[in-house]
């Protein structure tokens, strides 16, 4: 693929979390460096949705970069920030992990004390000895990092409250910058949200209502920036359109960085 912007359309088989989708159609823009492309994808998805799926529905737009910014600002060891971010596409498990962080219930103080004693003994071993395919020095280094250098924060409860409140923010898209900036200010977080996070500026596209939803986290791992879903107003209709930015996908499979944005419809539903 050259550096020129190109638009593609596809239809065929796809995989979602190890499950085969027999029939999926999608459209994508590659070498997309302009946020206007995000609007183009959402706008066209909205048109297709209204023509093929339903006249009424909701467009929910989020941005994983906002969540990343929030985590960067929180008083958490890097290990925990990475964990939370890593689990963004598994909301059930993410919630469980946040509860653990808030309560420290998964920590067994008695075991930690025993491990500290074992740590002192293991320090006398040859650091290059192998235990279950790991070097002793790697085990000790990680233990030091966890227990002594970057232990779990004492105010985990407050941090978790901030994360959970952030994930509850849902509002008409026009109000989003105001509500988000207020939220960050209230929680003394140095984040300023600009318009770049909101590819759609109006609260409606045709008959579809447009919301900002901070909990619009990717169900599939490929998305790494703006993401959106369009769902029918009626709960009976399960058909939806999902899309977003996947600027890092090409690098993750060993290619050069190709910024891209796209959307797809699973026709099996």
């Amino acid at each position: 693929m050259n550096n020129k912007k190109s638009k593609i359309f596809y239809s065929g088989e796809a995989y979602r979390k190890n499950q085969k989708v027999n029939s999926q159609v999608g459209f994508e823009i590659y070498n997309s460096n302009n946020p206007k492309d995000d609007f183009e994808i959402i706008y066209n998805s909205a048109k297709i949705f209204q023509k093929e799926i339903g006249k009424r529905g909701n467009i929910s737009i989020g941005n994983i970069k906002l969540f990343e910014s929030l985590l960067r600002q929180l008083d958490l060891p890097q290990r925990w920030k990475s964990r939370i971010l890593y689990l963004k596409n598994n909301s059930k498990y993410l919630n469980e992990i946040l509860n653990r962080l808030a309560t420290n219930q998964d920590l067994d103080e008695k075991n930690i004390e025993l491990d500290k004693k074992l740590y002192l003994k293991m320090k006398k071993l040859n650091p290059n000895n192998i235990i279950a395919n790991r070097k002793v020095k790697d085990i000790l280094q990680r233990f030091e990092q966890k227990i002594y250098i970057q232990p779990r924060p004492k105010n985990g409860k407050k941090t978790v409250q901030i994360i959970k409140s952030f994930l509850k923010i849902k509002c008409p898209i026009q109000k989003a910058p105001f509500i988000l900036n207020n939220f960050f200010k209230k929680n003394k977080l140095n984040i300023k949200v600009s318009n770049e996070f909101f590819p759609v500026k109006k609260n409606k596209i045709g008959n579809l209502k447009v919301y900002f939803n901070s909990n619009e986290l990717p169900a599939v791992e490929i998305y790494d920036g703006m993401l959106f879903s369009i769902k029918p107003a009626s709960m009976k209709n399960k058909q939806s359109i999902i899309g977003g930015r996947f600027d890092s996908l090409s690098q993750s499979i060993g290619l050069r960085k190709i910024n891209a944005v796209g959307a797809a419809i699973n026709l099996d539903k």
Partner: peptide, 15 residues
């Protein structure tokens, strides 16, 4: 292994 003192949970396994 007991001597994997840095590994208590599945999150540790992941990392």
């Amino acid at each position: 292994m007991n001597t994997w003192i840095d590994c208590q949970t599945m999150l540790d396994v992941s990392e």
